[in-house]
Design a protein around this nucleic acid. Structure first.
Lengths: 254, 254
DNA sequence: CGTGATTTTGACGACACTCAAATAAAGTGG
DNA sequence: CCACTTTATTTGAGTGTCGTCAAAATCACG
């Protein structure tokens, strides 16, 4: 995969004003007053990360904070034994970067499609955090939301078998990345099978077989490998163990 | 197990002043100024939860916040299929409760030994959070620490086999609950095998077999079922995949 | 259209789960 | 304090799910 430095600043006309930003309505910057928002925008640099680009790398310094406005990023940690655990897929509205630490990122962040993000210098962002308690509180809520999401993932890995894991994955993906107008039954899967496997704690073969089984049962269709159509939502909900979908939230990547 | 209401306020002489509290040096209350600390102590009710007592229950309102000063609590979530995932074991310095929500606790918290805790009314605690940004920021750091700890747990469940999981569990337990003077080679295990199993995503039989195998290999000794002595730390570190132990931190339970 | 990477399918084996029984520990009442 | 009950843990035997290894098919890209 191409991981060359393909970071570019977006030109002025591409740099939408915060007031018209789609990500804002769901993210932390949508929960602060005009003054704080102005200060935030003043230190932000809208940036494009092309597909495959490493946003930041595990164990390397983290001097920036990123607020994703478009595209998708995967977070993963490489293990000593050569394994790889993907800890999350992040999209519009999600925050990632050095909120906690300026050195030794816990994991690597990589764009799986072209990604646009507001980039803040860590120092400036933390200064705003001190000046605007609302922003700090908003981040605290985001962080506790993230802990809850991680708890769901822990349950998935600790107590669910293959079909249950894939069903939950498809439903969450369809729900969180619902594109305007879509009802969540057409799920875009921009990540590779390897990524899904490493996210669900499985092998690619097992993931592939699970997809095939879902097709055979008529639960889904796969017009493309990167696109699933959910044909039997009740069955998938049943498998995933969802009574109702979790309320929309934003993630906080480290 | 006895889960009757055995909550009692500690008498005045048992209620140690914050200035002499052992938990304070590691917890959030150790990172705020004297004024904020005074306000915090003013609304705190030191409370005893006897062994087996439910501190709060999954899906029930959460009108309090708890700061553990002694003992150990387990957090778990009951699943629709009858399963149970333990998401964490909390001890002195750890926070739990309704920081995010006043209704619908994510999981149940239960004392596995007698537990002492400072109990704060949620409303009052949140008010202090707004008035003292330092406290809010301190909690944010605690929350991001917790996210990182959950990431470790996700890796454990997603990519580790049985011996690796148990080795990691024993080392973390020995490290985090190190009693004064001890070097972390004598590990207290106040939780049942079932709890360890549900924490590590295994069955009790598998956990028991793993303990037996570690004994056979001379890695550990089990003077009592609730106490392990680590005899071969290098081997356990190797298995757990730890280069060095994570730095001490406090947890944040929801 | 051809090349390389990704995904799918197949055969086989191992690790961890299930079921079942024995042993050990903890709690209870005389 | 001891016999008894109950609960927790250990040990054993057999099974199934998912991982491993290998090859074929499909997809992406120039």
């Amino acid at each position: 995969m191409d991981t060359r430095n393909q970071t570019t600043l977006l030109s002025e006309d591409e740099h939408r004003d915060c007031r018209t930003c789609l990500a804002r309505q769901m993210s932390v910057c949508g929960k602060i007053d005009q003054v704080a928002l102005g200060r935030l925008q003043a230190i932000s640099r809208p940036t494009l990360f092309t597909k495959g680009r490493i946003v930041f790398e595990q164990d390397s310094p983290l001097d920036h904070i990123f607020l994703i406005t478009g595209g998708m990023v995967k977070l993963f940690r490489l293990l000593a034994d050569g394994g790889r655990q993907i800890t999350g897929f992040l999209g519009p509205g999600d925050l990632l970067g050095g909120i906690k630490r300026s050195a030794g990122a816990y994991c690597t962040a990589q764009a799986i499609v072209d990604v646009t993000a507001c980039v803040f210098p860590r120092a400036g962002f933390l200064r705003l955090l001190q000046e605007y308690p609302d922003l700090c509180f908003s981040l605290l809520i985001t962080a506790t939301d993230e802990i809850e999401a991680h708890n769901d993932h822990i349950i998935l890995l600790g107590h669910r078998r293959v079909p249950q894991r894939l069903a939950a994955f498809l439903l969450v993906m369809g729900h969180r990345w619902k594109t305007n107008g879509a009802d969540g039954t057409v799920v875009q899967l921009p990540m590779a099978r390897t990524d899904i496997a490493d996210y669900l704690g499985l092998t690619i073969e097992t993931v592939s077989r699970a997809f095939a089984e879902f097709k055979r049962l008529g639960y889904i269709a796969l017009p493309k490998t990167s696109q699933a159509v959910l044909l039997n939502l009740p069955a998938l909900y049943e498998l995933a163990g969802f009574e109702d979908m979790p309320t929309p939230r934003v993630s906080l990547g480290l």
